[in-house]
Protein backbone atom coordinates (compact mmCIF):
# COMPACT_ATOMS: atom_id res chain seq x y z
CA UNK A 1 0.00 0.00 0.00
CA UNK A 2 1.43 3.39 -0.99
CA UNK A 3 1.72 5.93 1.75
CA UNK A 4 3.01 9.43 1.23
CA UNK A 5 6.26 10.36 3.00
CA UNK A 6 4.30 12.80 5.16
CA UNK A 7 1.93 10.08 6.36
CA UNK A 8 4.87 7.74 7.04
CA UNK A 9 6.58 10.48 9.05
CA UNK A 10 3.43 11.19 11.02
CA UNK A 11 2.81 7.51 11.75
CA UNK A 12 6.43 7.09 12.85
CA UNK A 13 6.05 9.81 15.49
CA UNK A 14 2.68 8.42 16.61
CA UNK A 15 4.03 4.86 16.83
CA UNK A 16 6.98 6.04 18.92
CA UNK A 17 4.75 8.09 21.22
CA UNK A 18 2.15 5.36 21.71
CA UNK A 19 4.78 2.68 22.35
CA UNK A 20 6.24 4.96 25.00
CA UNK A 21 2.85 5.24 26.72
CA UNK A 22 2.57 1.44 26.94
CA UNK A 23 6.25 0.87 27.77
CA UNK A 24 6.06 3.07 30.86
CA UNK A 25 2.40 2.31 31.67
CA UNK A 26 3.11 2.50 35.40
CA UNK A 27 3.89 6.18 34.92
CA UNK A 28 1.39 6.96 32.17
CA UNK A 29 -1.75 4.87 32.72
CA UNK A 30 -1.79 3.54 36.24
CA UNK A 31 -1.58 6.74 38.36
CA UNK A 32 -4.88 8.19 37.06
CA UNK A 33 -6.66 4.88 37.55
CA UNK A 34 -5.58 4.77 41.19
CA UNK A 35 -6.18 8.47 41.91
CA UNK A 36 -9.61 8.51 40.30
CA UNK A 37 -10.50 5.23 42.02
CA UNK A 38 -9.77 6.98 45.33
CA UNK A 39 -11.89 9.99 44.32
CA UNK A 40 -14.77 7.65 43.44
CA UNK A 41 -14.42 5.82 46.74
CA UNK A 42 -13.96 8.80 49.05
CA UNK A 43 -15.91 11.65 47.44
CA UNK A 44 -18.35 9.56 45.47
CA UNK A 45 -19.24 6.79 47.88
CA UNK A 46 -18.23 7.69 51.47
CA UNK A 47 -19.07 11.41 51.35
CA UNK A 48 -21.35 11.47 48.32
CA UNK A 49 -23.81 8.96 49.82
CA UNK A 50 -24.63 11.55 52.48
CA UNK A 51 -25.36 14.31 49.94
CA UNK A 52 -28.70 15.06 48.29
CA UNK A 53 -29.08 14.29 44.56
CA UNK A 54 -27.74 16.90 42.09
CA UNK A 55 -30.06 17.61 39.13
CA UNK A 56 -31.76 14.33 39.94
CA UNK A 57 -28.61 12.20 39.88
CA UNK A 58 -26.67 10.67 42.76
CA UNK A 59 -23.49 12.55 43.66
CA UNK A 60 -21.20 9.86 42.33
CA UNK A 61 -23.06 9.80 39.02
CA UNK A 62 -22.66 13.57 38.91
CA UNK A 63 -18.90 13.62 39.52
CA UNK A 64 -17.85 10.65 37.33
CA UNK A 65 -17.84 12.64 34.04
CA UNK A 66 -15.94 15.51 35.68
CA UNK A 67 -13.32 13.20 37.15
CA UNK A 68 -12.86 11.43 33.83
CA UNK A 69 -12.38 14.82 32.19
CA UNK A 70 -9.90 15.77 34.91
CA UNK A 71 -7.86 12.65 34.05
CA UNK A 72 -8.10 13.43 30.34
CA UNK A 73 -6.86 17.00 30.83
CA UNK A 74 -3.96 15.99 33.06
CA UNK A 75 -2.84 13.09 30.91
CA UNK A 76 -3.06 14.88 27.57
CA UNK A 77 -1.10 17.81 28.95
CA UNK A 78 1.59 15.98 30.89
CA UNK A 79 2.15 13.42 28.15
CA UNK A 80 3.01 15.98 25.52
CA UNK A 81 4.87 18.41 27.75
CA UNK A 82 7.09 15.67 29.19
CA UNK A 83 7.83 13.82 25.96
CA UNK A 84 8.42 17.05 24.00
CA UNK A 85 10.54 18.67 26.69
CA UNK A 86 12.52 15.41 27.14
CA UNK A 87 13.21 15.38 23.41
CA UNK A 88 14.29 19.00 23.56
CA UNK A 89 16.55 18.56 26.59
CA UNK A 90 18.21 15.38 25.34
CA UNK A 91 18.35 17.06 21.93
CA UNK A 92 16.77 14.16 20.04
CA UNK A 93 14.12 16.60 18.89
CA UNK A 94 16.85 17.50 16.38
CA UNK A 95 16.13 14.17 14.68
CA UNK A 96 12.81 15.70 13.66
CA UNK A 97 14.02 19.23 13.08
CA UNK A 98 16.66 18.17 10.54
CA UNK A 99 14.18 15.95 8.71
CA UNK A 100 11.99 17.18 5.83
CA UNK A 101 8.82 16.71 7.87
CA UNK A 102 6.65 19.86 7.79
CA UNK A 103 6.15 21.50 11.18
CA UNK A 104 2.44 20.71 11.24
CA UNK A 105 3.20 17.00 10.95
CA UNK A 106 5.55 17.12 13.94
CA UNK A 107 2.90 19.00 15.93
CA UNK A 108 0.21 16.52 14.82
CA UNK A 109 2.41 13.55 15.82
CA UNK A 110 3.02 14.78 19.36
CA UNK A 111 -0.60 15.88 19.80
CA UNK A 112 -1.86 12.48 18.64
CA UNK A 113 0.36 10.81 21.23
CA UNK A 114 -1.24 12.93 23.94
CA UNK A 115 -4.76 12.27 22.63
CA UNK A 116 -4.21 8.50 22.50
CA UNK A 117 -2.98 8.43 26.11
CA UNK A 118 -5.86 10.65 27.27
CA UNK A 119 -8.46 8.46 25.55
CA UNK A 120 -6.98 5.24 26.97
CA UNK A 121 -7.00 6.76 30.45
CA UNK A 122 -10.59 7.95 29.93
CA UNK A 123 -11.70 4.40 29.10
CA UNK A 124 -9.77 2.96 32.06
CA UNK A 125 -11.17 5.50 34.53
CA UNK A 126 -14.68 4.97 33.21
CA UNK A 127 -14.09 1.25 33.70
CA UNK A 128 -13.09 1.85 37.32
CA UNK A 129 -16.18 4.00 37.88
CA UNK A 130 -18.33 0.95 37.08
CA UNK A 131 -17.22 -0.55 40.41
CA UNK A 132 -18.97 2.36 42.16
CA UNK A 133 -21.96 3.27 39.99
CA UNK A 134 -23.66 2.45 36.75
CA UNK A 135 -23.14 4.59 33.65
CA UNK A 136 -25.92 6.56 32.06
CA UNK A 137 -25.33 7.54 28.44
CA UNK A 138 -27.40 10.40 27.06
CA UNK A 139 -25.55 11.23 23.84
CA UNK A 140 -22.53 9.23 22.69
CA UNK A 141 -21.56 11.74 20.01
CA UNK A 142 -21.33 14.58 22.55
CA UNK A 143 -19.28 12.37 24.87
CA UNK A 144 -16.82 11.47 22.13
CA UNK A 145 -16.70 15.01 20.71
CA UNK A 146 -16.04 16.58 24.12
CA UNK A 147 -13.31 14.13 25.14
CA UNK A 148 -11.62 14.34 21.75
CA UNK A 149 -11.60 18.14 21.58
CA UNK A 150 -10.46 18.46 25.20
CA UNK A 151 -7.60 16.02 24.73
CA UNK A 152 -6.52 17.80 21.53
CA UNK A 153 -6.68 21.16 23.27
CA UNK A 154 -4.59 20.13 26.25
CA UNK A 155 -2.12 18.20 24.12
CA UNK A 156 -1.46 21.39 22.16
CA UNK A 157 -1.24 23.34 25.42
CA UNK A 158 1.33 20.83 26.69
CA UNK A 159 3.31 21.22 23.50
CA UNK A 160 3.32 25.00 23.92
CA UNK A 161 4.59 24.60 27.47
CA UNK A 162 7.30 22.27 26.13
CA UNK A 163 8.35 24.83 23.52
CA UNK A 164 8.72 27.60 26.08
CA UNK A 165 10.15 25.52 28.93
CA UNK A 166 13.87 25.79 29.59
CA UNK A 167 13.99 23.85 32.86
CA UNK A 168 12.17 20.91 34.43
CA UNK A 169 10.55 23.35 36.88
CA UNK A 170 8.93 25.14 33.97
CA UNK A 171 7.03 22.03 32.91
CA UNK A 172 5.54 21.59 36.38
CA UNK A 173 4.47 25.17 37.01
CA UNK A 174 1.47 25.21 34.65
CA UNK A 175 -0.01 21.84 35.74
CA UNK A 176 0.41 22.70 39.42
CA UNK A 177 -0.55 26.34 39.53
CA UNK A 178 -2.93 26.67 36.59
CA UNK A 179 -4.40 23.36 35.46
CA UNK A 180 -5.17 21.80 38.84
CA UNK A 181 -6.92 24.87 40.33
CA UNK A 182 -8.89 25.51 37.12
CA UNK A 183 -9.97 21.86 36.99
CA UNK A 184 -11.08 21.82 40.63
CA UNK A 185 -12.96 25.08 40.07
CA UNK A 186 -14.34 23.89 36.73
CA UNK A 187 -17.47 22.24 38.05
CA UNK A 188 -16.02 18.74 38.51
CA UNK A 189 -17.42 18.40 42.03
CA UNK A 190 -20.34 20.80 41.98
CA UNK A 191 -22.89 22.54 39.80
CA UNK A 192 -22.19 26.26 39.48
CA UNK A 193 -25.92 26.80 40.11
CA UNK A 194 -25.09 26.24 43.78
CA UNK A 195 -22.55 29.08 43.83
CA UNK A 196 -23.22 32.71 44.80
CA UNK A 197 -23.91 34.87 41.75
CA UNK A 198 -20.44 36.46 41.65
CA UNK A 199 -18.61 33.14 41.68
CA UNK A 200 -21.09 31.66 39.22
CA UNK A 201 -20.20 34.38 36.69
CA UNK A 202 -16.50 34.13 37.55
CA UNK A 203 -16.67 30.40 36.82
CA UNK A 204 -17.88 31.18 33.31
CA UNK A 205 -14.41 32.57 32.58
CA UNK A 206 -12.90 29.15 33.29
CA UNK A 207 -12.60 27.23 29.99
CA UNK A 208 -12.47 23.88 31.79
CA UNK A 209 -16.03 24.45 33.02
CA UNK A 210 -17.27 24.16 29.43
CA UNK A 211 -15.41 20.92 28.78
CA UNK A 212 -16.59 19.27 31.99
CA UNK A 213 -20.17 20.33 31.36
CA UNK A 214 -20.20 19.23 27.71
CA UNK A 215 -18.85 15.83 28.75
CA UNK A 216 -21.36 15.56 31.61
CA UNK A 217 -24.16 16.48 29.23
CA UNK A 218 -23.18 13.54 27.03
CA UNK A 219 -23.68 11.18 29.98
CA UNK A 220 -26.47 12.72 32.05
CA UNK A 221 -28.14 15.22 29.72
CA UNK A 222 -27.55 18.08 32.17
CA UNK A 223 -25.22 21.06 31.88
CA UNK A 224 -24.62 24.40 33.61
CA UNK A 225 -23.79 26.01 30.26
CA UNK A 226 -24.99 25.65 26.69
CA UNK A 227 -23.40 22.61 25.02
CA UNK A 228 -23.16 24.52 21.74
CA UNK A 229 -21.21 27.29 23.50
CA UNK A 230 -19.00 24.64 25.13
CA UNK A 231 -18.05 23.16 21.77
CA UNK A 232 -17.49 26.66 20.42
CA UNK A 233 -15.14 27.50 23.31
CA UNK A 234 -13.17 24.27 22.83
CA UNK A 235 -12.86 24.80 19.08
CA UNK A 236 -11.83 28.44 19.51
CA UNK A 237 -9.12 27.51 22.02
CA UNK A 238 -7.83 24.72 19.79
CA UNK A 239 -7.59 27.02 16.77
CA UNK A 240 -5.89 29.80 18.78
CA UNK A 241 -3.34 27.50 20.43
CA UNK A 242 -2.66 25.65 17.18
CA UNK A 243 -1.99 28.87 15.29
CA UNK A 244 0.36 30.01 18.05
CA UNK A 245 2.17 26.64 18.15
CA UNK A 246 2.68 26.53 14.39
CA UNK A 247 3.86 30.14 14.41
CA UNK A 248 6.43 29.35 17.11
CA UNK A 249 7.56 26.22 15.27
CA UNK A 250 7.93 28.22 12.07
CA UNK A 251 10.05 30.80 13.85
CA UNK A 252 11.98 28.11 15.67
CA UNK A 253 11.25 29.85 18.99
CA UNK A 254 12.64 27.79 21.86
CA UNK A 255 13.76 25.15 19.36
CA UNK A 256 16.43 26.69 17.16
CA UNK A 257 19.20 29.23 17.71
Amino acid sequence: MFRSPTIIGYLTIVRKEVLRVFRIWMQTLLPSVITMGLYFAIFGTFIGSQLPPTHGFSYIQFIVPGLVMMAVITNAYTNVVSTFFGAKMQRYLEELLVSPLPNWVIVAGFVTGGVVRALIVAVLVLGVSLFFTHLVIFNLLVIFGAVLLTSILFSIAGLLNGIYAKTFDAINIVPTFVLTPLTYLGGVFYSIDKLPVFFRYLSLANPILYMVNAFRYGFLGISDVSVGVSFGVMTAFIVALLVLTLYLFGKGAGLKS
Partner: peptide, 8 residues
Protein backbone atom coordinates in the same frame (compact mmCIF):
# COMPACT_ATOMS: atom_id res chain seq x y z
CA UNK B 1 12.56 5.83 13.18
CA UNK B 2 14.85 8.34 11.50
CA UNK B 3 14.06 6.63 8.18
CA UNK B 4 10.38 7.14 8.95
CA UNK B 5 10.89 10.86 9.45
CA UNK B 6 12.28 10.93 5.92
CA UNK B 7 9.22 9.12 4.59
CA UNK B 8 10.87 5.71 4.15
Amino acid sequence: NQAGYYGI
